[in-house]
Nucleic acid binder design. Structure first.
Lengths: 359, 359
DNA sequence: TTGTAGGCGTTATCAG
DNA sequence: CTGATAACGCCTACAA
């Protein structure tokens, strides 16, 4: 590979001049400028990003750390980030953590030695990102956190409006006539799971519906968790007529569990998902879901990073993206004979804290 | 960030000694060694990958170029590559080409200036990879091509056994009694699409079944293409009783087209996909498909690259991964009254299809 | 066994 | 406006 020295020789100018025309760092007179440009062309020269970075103390790479590219929600996020990064001359280093915070730490530490221009992170479970990001911040490297936030995060962030999305979804279920609503949330230590569950609870509260403790299940964000917890819910008396799943993967598991239990969706039980993955459209029945744009999550994060790189010193931004409700065939009115089903007191809420099983 | 000079100062040794203990490049006496290690610990020192790479003329980054991470087949491939790369100390730079060979070229050219340890590429449409790779090869950088091969590729490659996979799938369809088999292949300039179609034709030939030209459609590897071409096929007389889709996305579109035409799958038309994506399991009906492991595609490619890095000079490898047939509910025996089946009324096909919202 | 010095390809500073 | 020259942080002969 030709280097700058070669170009200088070919063009018959000095090294400095070549650098100047390449970076516009000094007005080089036209004839010389042309000679240099021509030499660059002829040699197919491309500057070494490595040397440049070493010298400038900054690469044009953006580190992107996510739990698992194999999870169907994340590719769109990555793609969004890559698109705006690429069109601004930045590249993405992709790292998977598998939600393991020690693996996240390894990536965080190593990435630093590449002097990335910035970092976009979907924190792992129990992420220590807040502490780690501090050292990046000190080095002037922006870190934006997306989708969910680690403990005490105060830096830039982009998330969906999980609370409101869930709230509106549940409201629509209530308007269909449901009164026995259960939830299978994701891990509640994750802010997105927690916020969605909060929206669920708010909708119930406003409708003066009581939430029995057994009606609130928590699991991991995957199909299997959804399947298992749905089995539990279906066994309860009275059986819930609608289940709010913490994400579409959980909803998928719920769909399978309902089918395996010999029940019908939505005639017996309605299912509401969250994320609106591509697959929501192709399941049987198709899945009603709260739609959020992973792509936009990615683009927004990259955008913030680029702004920071261009000198934006404003205080931390907390972007919250709108969601929208996609009603499909997994939700419908509750079964007619709902009030004849065996009674359990789920309405009175004079005693807010009912005694529950010891654990 | 602390650098080597700092460590040397803290440990009270020379720069060279620090480097020697860090790289085991010379037997440093234990006491000194300990002092250095301690200083490294204390300072939380991590060597600059940038400087190291500049000096060694090689990074520990593997460039991975794919069409689009958003295509559900690719995440597993990326993950496979990342897993073996990561566990060997290598990182992945991810680039999307959108199947645009000029974008691919941009990536190829820029990536070079990072001195990547190697490249894993799923070539774009009309890729010029063969020529480009030559310059990498000259620089001693391995390039392995996966999933599909560009024109005249003679370097390392990993692909699925597309021909055999398709062949066996079609054979099973024929054994079910189908004689009117149609195909909707992917773009035939792509080797994987071409090979699958070849397997399809071989199975027909062996069974002495004639392939009418209109029974062989070609489209892009996506849902919409599948939908459109299926509409064409369903209008033919006689109507095919089984359709071999070039991949699962096409198959998905076929499923939708069949439903929208008021036909049933598999009772009226069987659908066979290729790839066995996660979604194959959740469609309605669930999708029979030729299963190939994207993950393994990724790990194998990375493995080859690492072997090359460790000095493997053997001639180009052409790994071909086995496929397996996953029979689900989208395939079955052809309709009994097949010869009397009337042409479907498709006159309304211009009306917008329900729920196929823009994506 | 340890230390010294040169250089990887750039950019930035500072004379001319 | 142009051209030397000194870093950037590390590795590696080679010298001590």
């Amino acid at each position: 590979m030709a280097n700058m020295k070669d170009i200088a020789r070919i063009a018959g100018v000095s090294l400095g001049t070549v650098s100047h025309v390449l970076n516009d760092s000094a007005g080089v007179r036209e004839p010389l400028r042309q000679r240099v440009l021509q030499a660059v062309q002829a040699a197919g020269y491309q500057p070494s990003q490595l040397a440049r970075a070493l010298r400038r103390d900054k690469t044009n790479m953006i580190g992107m750390i996510i739990p698992d590219i194999t999870n169907p929600f994340f590719p769109a996020v990555v793609r969004g980030a890559e698109d705006v990064a690429f069109s601004n001359g930045y590249r993405l280093i992709l790292c998977n953590t598998d939600n393991d915070h020690s693996k996240e730490l390894v990536h965080l530490n190593e990435l630093r030695t590449y002097l990335p221009a910035g970092l976009i992170v979907i924190p792992s479970n129990f992420s220590d990102l807040t502490a780690q990001a501090e050292s990046y911040r000190r080095a002037g490297t922006g870190v934006v956190c997306i989708d969910r936030l680690p403990k005490n995060w105060s830096g830039d962030s982009v998330t969906a409006d999980n609370e409101a999305g869930a709230y509106h979804a549940i409201r629509s279920l209530i308007q269909m006539g449901h009164t026995k609503l259960a939830a299978i949330s994701g891990p509640l230590h994750l802010t997105n799971a927690k916020d969605r569950f909060a929206g669920f609870k708010r909708a119930l509260r406003e409708a003066k519906l009581h939430l029995a403790p057994e009606y609130a299940q928590e699991t991991t964000f995957d199909k299997q968790g959804g399947y298992l917890k749905t089995n539990i819910l279906l066994r309860l008396i009275p059986r819930p007529t609608a289940i709010f799943a913490g994400n579409d993967l959980i909803a998928l598991g719920a769909l399978l569990a309902i089918r395996d239990a010999g029940l019908r969706c939505p005639e017996d039980v309605s299912i509401m998902g969250f994320d609106d993955l591509d697959l929501a459209d192709t399941t049987n029945p198709s899945l009603s879901s709260v739609s959020q744009s992973g792509y936009q999550l990615g683009t927004s994060a990259a955008r913030i990073l680029l702004d920071r790189l261009e000198g934006d010193k404003s205080p931390a931004k907390h972007l919250i993206l709108e969601t929208s409700l996609k009603l499909r065939n997994s939700t419908g009115a509750p079964p007619n004979d709902v009030r004849s089903s065996p009674a359990v007191n789920l309405t009175s809420s004079t005693k807010p804290n009912r005694k529950r099983a010891v654990r």
